[in-house]
Every structure is written in structure tokens, then in C-alpha cells.
């Protein structure tokens, strides 16, 4: 009996010292967590961009990177808390749906660093990464109008939220700048977060717009964008991709992509945190610092002729120098 007790104590002691030993080792590594939204790591768009940025930082600074994809909107807070409890140094939330969860978690863990894309959380340990989507959308809208022969272009939004309306507003304004008489057809996939993952519905909307006379359609719909690409391929018309460079998905059918450099924003957040230079507050990414842009590569250089590109670059300069004021859905003017 006595012997057993001693063995028990001994084992317990060993276990305890093992825990003690492993703790400092874990601290030596810089740990970054990435909480993706429903689109998932491989949406080829928004989340893919975030993941690529984080992976780049991981390779460069030898970080420990963990990513999760939230199955439903109620999972965010629990995920953020568990990462904070596991001593992750920087926790990055992707998507406006996580704003409330980040606020709660960041209040609870003031020593931890958080970053969130697409929303403002006003706490000293949170960096809010905001993009001027309307500026980039303005440029691709202008590109659509320059290419359109039917004078009808389309827009497909994912979930109907202000952020996605902001894309729409900039896009329509850019198109009207080139051709005041152009018609912009606009549809939304849905009003729930399932909308980011419904390519069949996106394809149906795109076919409707193409058959209704549109010859260029822009979609800001996460993983649902695949449906637009298929519709453009089948009807032999043009698509415009979003967030990541999607020109490669259907070479020759994707006019351009509205780049939203979530990757650079995420990379910079990792880099700053790693170098102990992390700051809270709002960081804005616009045309000026190449946070948004239109994409040109080998897949679309034939579609975007030098004249078109020249026109777009001229518009870009005018937006940066405030000669053109792009209407912003957030401020409604």
C-alpha cells in the first residue's frame, strides 16, 4: 500500500516537472493564430489571401501558425478565447462577422495582441485592418465599362451587408464615370453567411445577368465566385474576380480581379508583432498604399489592352490625389 503511494507521488512529481520543463520551451516559439470565416482556407479569394499572408510570415520568421475555420458564427468567440488561453502571441480574425467576438476576447485578454480584417474594434491591443474597397471597385467598374459592348454590366454580391454594398457602389460609380448611360444590374446571393459558399446560386444569378444582356460581371462573394467563373466560361463572356488575383481560374474569361491585399495586411501584422512593434488602432489600405488595386498578369494582359490600362492608371492617380471622390457606402456620399 505504502509502496503504491510512493510510486504515485513519484509519478506525479515526474509529470509536474515535465510540465514545468515544457512550458518555457513553448514560450520560445512565436505563435500566431488565424481564425478564418465560413468561406474556408481554400475559397481562392478572401480567406486564401489571409492564409497566404500568414504563411509567408510563418516561413520568413519561423512562426508557429495555426489556422481554424469557424463552422458557424457562434464559434468565433470560443475559438478566440481558446487561442488566447493557449498563449498565442497574435490572433488574427478574418471577416466582419468576428467583430463582436474579437471585442470580447480582447477585453478579456488585454495582454494578447489581436488583429481583425474589415471591422473596427476600438481597443489598444487590437489592430483593425480596413480596406478602401470602393476605390478598387471603382477601377474595375471603369474597366468593365471600357470593355462592355452591350452597355450593360452586372454585379453579384455575396451576403447583403454594408461592406458588400460598398463594393457595389464603387463599381457602379466607376462604370458611370466612363459611360454615364451604362446600366448596372445588381443581385445579392443571400442574407446569411451561407451566401459565401453557394456557387450554384451565384452561377444562376450570373447566367441571368449574362442572358439579360450584361457582358461583364463582377462578383464579391467569396467562395461563391466560382459560380460566376463557370457562367462566364459557358456563355463566353467576362468575369471580374475579387480579393485574391482570380485571373488564373478561367484564363481569358476573367477580365481582371479587384485585389484586396489582405495578404500584405496580415503579413505586416505578423511581422510587427514578431519584432515587438505591434500597435493597435486602425490601419487603412487603399489605392495609395496598394492595399487595393486591379490585377494584371499573363492571363489577362490581352484583355486589358494598354489603352485600357492607361485609362485606369490615370483614374487611379486622380483618386489618390483626391481629384475624383469615390462614393463610399459607409458614409453614403
Amino acid at each position: 500500500m505504502n509502496f503504491n503511494k510512493n510510486v504515485g507521488l513519484l509519478l506525479g512529481g515526474l509529470l509536474w516537472s515535465a510540465v514545468q520543463l515544457s512550458a518555457p520551451l513553448a514560450h520560445a516559439e512565436f505563435k500566431v493564430a488565424l481564425v478564418l470565416d465560413k468561406g474556408g482556407r481554400d475559397d481562392k479569394s478572401f480567406n486564401s489571401a489571409a492564409y497566404n499572408g500568414a504563411t509567408q510570415a510563418k516561413d520568413e520568421f519561423k512562426l508557429l501558425l495555426k489556422y481554424v475555420e469557424a463552422g458557424d458564427d457562434n464559434a468565433y468567440e470560443a475559438l478566440l478565447r481558446s487561442f488566447a488561453q493557449k498563449n498565442f502571441d497574435l490572433i488574427i480574425s478574418i471577416g466582419v462577422a468576428q467583430a463582436e467576438a474579437v471585442k470580447k476576447a480582447a477585453e478579456k485578454f488585454p495582454q494578447k495582441h489581436f488583429a481583425i480584417v474589415d471591422a473596427t474594434v476600438d481597443l489598444p491591443n487590437v489592430r483593425s485592418l480596413l480596406f478602401e474597397e470602393h476605390e478598387g471597385s471603382y477601377l474595375v467598374g471603369a474597366a468593365a465599362a471600357l470593355v462592355s459592348k452591350s452597355n450593360i454590366i452586372g454585379y453579384i454580391g455575396g451576403m447583403d451587408i454594408p461592406l458588400i454594398r460598398r463594393f457595389e457602389m464603387g463599381y457602379a460609380a466607376g462604370a458611370k464615370k466612363i459611360n454615364p448611360k451604362i446600366k448596372v444590374i445588381s443581385n445579392f446571393i443571400g442574407v446569411t453567411s451561407d451566401s459565401w459558399n453557394n456557387p450554384a446560386k451565384a452561377k444562376e444569378l450570373a447566367l441571368t445577368q449574362f442572358n439579360g444582356g450584361a457582358d461583364v460581371v463582377f462578383a464579391a462573394a467569396g467562395a461563391s465566385n466560382a459560380g460566376l467563373m463557370d457562367a462566364a466560361e459557358e456563355t463566353r463572356k467576362y468575369a471580374i474576380g475579387v480579393d485574391s488575383n482570380q485571373n488564373w481560374i478561367k484564363p481569358g474569361r476573367v477580365l481582371t480581379s479587384m485585389l484586396k491585399r489582405v495578404d500584405t495586411a496580415v503579413y505586416a501584422a505578423c511581422k510587427d508583432a514578431f519584432n515587438n512593434k505591434f500597435t493597435g488602432g486602425v490601419v487603412r489600405f487603399g489605392l495609395q498604399n496598394k492595399g487595393v488595386d486591379y490585377a494584371v498578369d499573363q492571363h489577362n494582359e490581352k484583355l486589358l489592352t494598354p489603352e485600357i490600362r492607361k485609362k485606369l492608371d490615370q483614374l487611379k492617380i486622380e483618386i489618390i490625389s483626391r481629384k475624383i471622390k469615390v462614393p463610399d457606402y459607409y458614409t453614403k456620399k
Binding site: D194, N197, N198, P199, A200, K201, K203, A223, A226
Partner: peptide
Amino acid sequence: SLSIFLASSFSRNMTA
């Protein structure tokens, strides 16, 4: 018919 007719790949919870 959803993944290889209406859409062109499987995506998570695509039956919606």
C-alpha cells in the same frame, strides 16, 4: 447534380 451540373466543384455545406 448540384456539384457537377449546377456548380463545378464541391464546396462546404453546398446543399444549403
